[in-house]
Design a protein around this nucleic acid. Sequence first.
DNA 1: TTGTTCTATTTATCATGATAAATAGGTTGG
DNA 2: CCAACCTATTTATCATGATAAATAGAACAA
Lengths: 281, 281
Amino acid sequence: MTIDRAKAGAAIEIKQQKRGDLVAEEIKRLITEKDLKPGDRLPREVELQQLFSVSKSTIREALKSLEVQGLIKVTTGPSGGGMVVEVPLDRTLQLLQNYLFFKDVSIDDIYTVRKLLEPELAAGAVPHLTEQDFEALEASIACCDRPASSHGGQDIVRQRQEDVNFHDILAAANPNPFLRFSCELINEMIRQLIEFRNDTPQVEHERFGLANVKIHKAITKAARERDVEKVRELMVVHMTEAPRYVKRMKGKLRGRLILDSEIRRRVRARSVAPTDEPDQE
Amino acid sequence: MTIDRAKAGAAIEIKQQKRGDLVAEEIKRLITEKDLKPGDRLPREVELQQLFSVSKSTIREALKSLEVQGLIKVTTGPSGGGMVVEVPLDRTLQLLQNYLFFKDVSIDDIYTVRKLLEPELAAGAVPHLTEQDFEALEASIACCDRPASSHGGQDIVRQRQEDVNFHDILAAANPNPFLRFSCELINEMIRQLIEFRNDTPQVEHERFGLANVKIHKAITKAARERDVEKVRELMVVHMTEAPRYVKRMKGKLRGRLILDSEIRRRVRARSVAPTDEPDQE
DNA sequence: TTGTTCTATTTATCATGATAAATAGGTTGG
DNA sequence: CCAACCTATTTATCATGATAAATAGAACAA
């Protein structure tokens, strides 16, 4: 009877999956079982066809599926084919925004969460900030600490984006990957917000920019002194003040699909493993 | 020179996109521009082929891409083809876990965030809880408020899962979609945790279960009294105590890809629009 | 009315093969 | 040693067509 119950439960809503999806799943299982790491290669298309006894089109759809999920990257040429990759943050954020596209997320909604997370994020980052990080933080501040009007309207938007970078640098230094991710998601959403709602009077922007520079400076100073609690406090203040400015630059997180082409590969402030040689291949 | 800089910046790492990806993007643009809502249908495959002047295989890959992203559902038959759907939460969570698969998220990492969000979530939910919600909360508690040992080991795991449901019910009642999503993500991660690390002695489980029942009862009571601050306080306590138990049930969030077949369509505690008839097809 | 059967539509998968494009690695010329 | 070129490999896309499976809606029967 335990079995019956289990069977009944399992029977609910078992939609016949498409073969391509099953193959994609098999490949995932293959990745897990063979413990394939980023950089490892999948068998060639032809071999996969034989392995799963499916036709070319099916295996291609399966690979496409994995590619869209960001799990593999497919290349042409010798030793080409599917290669396991670490799912890129940008891809993940994009998929997430597809979801949020259908929700109705307001600026307040985002800031409610940000206010809760960001102080803890900053506090946790403080002990791990390197000299390099401080320089990056200061560079970010410097970028915003000068009149932007001379360069034209576009520059203002860039300064606001740079404000967000400040927080990304802090995020990168926090050892908690989940907290880090959560804040990076928020930062990305705010970026989108800036990008598509820049119909704000320049005066507003400037006032906001000045306030940001001031508090960012204070935060950096406290961080240099490794004063965790001070940083936390300042960030609370920052997160309380910021939404007031942003709200005046009103608007909802635009219900809008983020196109692949719009994902700028931002320069990550900090790699996962800081090595001497920047290994980019 | 501004132009030069911009061009240089844009030139960095512009990878030639595959045609299929471009088509997928075009369809996304089509969805945005035509303001297609969930339920609306895309043109048929053949028409899309003509529309973008690509072959069958290319259009299929594009549709596959959108399907994997959860943006469309493709069906056979008359008036079949691609239909825009609201990206399912489960799909989103799965894609997210692909990302986290490569990170090394510990229980502490999750609880650090949970501790920050859950009290606010609960507090925000209180004014919106309906009688139906209270009943669901109490049912959830009742489910855990009896010895599980009689039914065998599997039942214990189910009770822990039910504990998480309690929080899902609260989440569903919070009007902030972003906060809601964040907590639902956490809940799902905890579920995964329970599912794959249930090598914990039964005594531990029971002790944890009892503690949960107690505090869940208190929270429900305070919520019934619409005492927002009390709820928040209690949840802080709950979030502080819980990780102690869970940590003893040690383990990392298993680095493990979640297979499509493992996505149980959980019964959502509350639909977006609560109807009289439970529409299950 | 109600439930069943039929049918036309549309995707799913298979099969096969051809040309184009990307690329790793070897070869050649300086 | 370095740069430019060549080549074999492998995916990307196109083309075409056939069979299978799912399904909405019409036709039909009780």
